[in-house]
Design a protein around this nucleic acid. Sequence first.
DNA 1: ATTTAGCTATACAGATTAGTATAATCAAGT
DNA 2: ACTTGATTATACTAATCTGTATAGCTAAAT
Lengths: 187, 187
Amino acid sequence: MSSLREKILTTASALFQTQGINSTGVDTIVAVAGTTKMTLYKYFGSKETLILEVLKQGHQDFQSWLNHKLSTNTKKPGEKIQKLFDYIEEWVASPDFQGVGFIKASAEFPKEENPVHQLSSEQSLQFRQYISQLAAEANIQDADGLALQLSLLFEGAVQAEQMKRGSGAMKYAKTAAKILIDGALTH
Amino acid sequence: MSSLREKILTTASALFQTQGINSTGVDTIVAVAGTTKMTLYKYFGSKETLILEVLKQGHQDFQSWLNHKLSTNTKKPGEKIQKLFDYIEEWVASPDFQGVGFIKASAEFPKEENPVHQLSSEQSLQFRQYISQLAAEANIQDADGLALQLSLLFEGAVQAEQMKRGSGAMKYAKTAAKILIDGALTH
DNA sequence: ATTTAGCTATACAGATTAGTATAATCAAGT
DNA sequence: ACTTGATTATACTAATCTGTATAGCTAAAT
């Protein structure tokens, strides 16, 4: 079971989001999680490993949640891309939303050779490919191009939301996305 | 004259961009700038002040460059918003492009009470208002809404460009922007 | 030649950080 | 009752970072 490992993960995730990654010490993490450094370093050999695990967990949670929502609420595969931002907005508005890890992480670790930066970059690409796949299912010509544009809206809105909480940026990203998708569908 | 002050400013700006703000120590800055800590602390009383000055300088450089380009290359005021992303792309592609400070800074200093975060937030808002003004000059109904959407594309593309250099994200942001602007103009 | 101002050189204080070493505690299973 | 394994508690090391103190250098102006 090892609920302590998960407790450390969720605590670190919340602190990284609210305080920043570099500004959050392991002492703070273990204090808030109600454990000690020894236990943290037993489960995660280093702070960097912990960061990577937090990123993996967050990305997987988001992807599986989104995929489940889209799979159960659409009939034809081409419908998914049209509902994509509806669920993204729902995700961002949910109370346990803890930001999008890879956006913040890539900003705090800008060196390309850094493992955290590399994982962030990989996750960003993976999400874009997921959108591209949805676009292709809807028979959109330039699926990759539209996917990139939608990912820009997504990342920009998350960025704006992080900059000023409750800015409603994702709502405007959603309407912009609909325009871009409609335009791509008719061509 | 005080060219040392400017040397420190540009050096810090470059290092903040490539290494991250929190990961760049003042010792590194003065070593690269070819001066000493005493001089740095004489001009800027603290590292935080230096960060704020770097942000102010970068934002002002960008705004005045952009404004000059738009003013000299358009005849009617309504044309500006259509050429906006052409010049933004040119700016990002220029060799001395050193990122957009407020995007990175707000990610590294997420606490809203932090002065660096506050300045970043303010600059982001100011840029959005500038776009909104261009939209209003073109007689666009929901100028603020379009401005927010365009700023999302802008910030998302800069974010993507920082994540993977030379990704060409701004090119796709530009075409998406044109679609959104055209849509807003016909309504 | 001497003063003055700006800059350098260097050492250091004080705080914070990641990570480790060691011993004590606690809860089970046998 | 005893062992085993996981966790806690605490102290420590070594590195890093911001900011300061002190003294010396250099060049120009008078």
